[in-house]
Design a protein around this nucleic acid. Sequence first.
DNA 1: CAGGCCTTCTTTATCACACG
DNA 2: CGTGTGATAAAGAAGGCCTG
Length: 279
Amino acid sequence: MRGIPSFEEYIDSLGRLSIHLDPTAGTPESAALIEAAQSLYELPEIDTATLATWANDHPEWVPALGLTVGLSQERLKNTLRHALGSSGWVSIARARPYELIEFLEEEFDLVRLLTIQRDRRYDFGDILVARAGTRATAARAGAAGRRIEDEIEAIAEDLGLDYETRTRFVGRNGRTAPCDLVVPGGGDAAIAVAAKGFDSTGSKLTDAVREIEEMAEVRLPRQFVMAVIDGIGWKSRQADLRRIHSLWEQQQIDGMYTLATLGDFRADLEEVARLRGFL
DNA sequence: CAGGCCTTCTTTATCACACG
DNA sequence: CGTGTGATAAAGAAGGCCTG
């Protein structure tokens, strides 16, 4: 047996896993996009009718229209699922191309954006900006996440409650669980609130469910647990959403709300706070 | 700088339909 | 009527930023 290397030696032996790719190298995906762009470029006229025909002729190129209005492939999927009932743009483009284009037009201004971008000349700076795009989307993600948190915090603030945000609360047997808002504080929690908004999908939604299950498990009977859950990402993650909903049905948590029913949230929060003598 | 957040990418399972 | 294939849905892993 070899001896155990020291921690420092281990650290020094860590290496890079990913390989670096030449950003100018082509891939099958980029080739398809270039072909799609060329095809759009050659359209003699751009309007909803010609685009519907185009989409119907090339269903697999629909993502190019998404990119035109600033929708990545994943966002396109989730948006279509929300609006047209399915994330499958191929089927949609084949069966109801007009509906697809009308939607992109009304919601995202497709014709205008395509028209002005198609004939524009792009320089080196534009390319660098495009490559830096992932950074911008990550920043947007953070902002979207705080949206719900900010909303519920504003309500607690407006009601004049003492509260803490983004912390853990203590439940039975001294066990703790995470929460996004707690009244009046994590150490003496009476009301714990989870805020989980996702416009995209992924296993993070499963993690969010696990977190709420943890809250339900740790809570004392007298502690009130509420969850504000929203975002179109849940439409592609219905099994996870169902798990939260059944916690509610079984009264393991006391309330579940979307941004649209935040009025109920406020009313319930106020009622419980009054009951506990915080107001 | 650990921990938290959402999005993107990848893989696996399920479904629908054409074909022989 | 079984099978194979293309497409969608669902699940899992990774990436990248921000905040306290």
